[in-house]
Design a binder for these strands. Structure first.
Length: 108
DNA sequence: GGCGTGACTTGAA
DNA sequence: ATTCAAGCCACGC
């Protein structure tokens, strides 16, 4: 069975605890492809319907860049707020406080 | 089989 | 300090 690059991404995203968020770059770096953060985002595009909490994944600045890909822009924000994350101006409040880095949390 | 795309990141000017 | 530009790799047509 050949696991795709995406499956790795999904595995990590699914490990994100509730009330926490991570960035594409963090995941990419965890996979060893720091410059390939785009692939992570691409994987998220496929993540729909795969039990992958893509709404917990934002860009390196805590900005909800992919909110439009949820169908409607407010869904992602609503989901994050529902988990206790405050969103201000399409950005995560206290981003560094809720930031979840697989490199650290998984203690690679 | 080749070209373009894409929810980002980092580095340099 | 901010703004511009290039890089990265897999998937779709």
């Amino acid at each position: 069975m050949e696991y795709s690059f995406y499956d790795n991404v999904y595995s990590i995203v699914r490990l994100i605890p509730k009330g926490r968020v991570t960035s594409y770059g963090a995941i990419a770096k965890y996979l060893g492809t720091t410059g390939s953060a785009r692939m992570v985002g691409w994987a998220m595009n496929q993540a729909h319907g795969k039990n992958v909490p893509a709404h917990r994944v934002v860009n390196g600045k805590g900005l909800l860049t992919g909110k439009h890909h949820f169908g409607t822009p407010y869904i992602m924000q609503k989901l994050l707020e529902n988990e206790g994350i405050e969103i201000i101006n399409d950005q995560v409040s206290c981003f560094k406080d809720v930031f979840w880095d697989p490199m650290i949390e998984l203690d690679l």
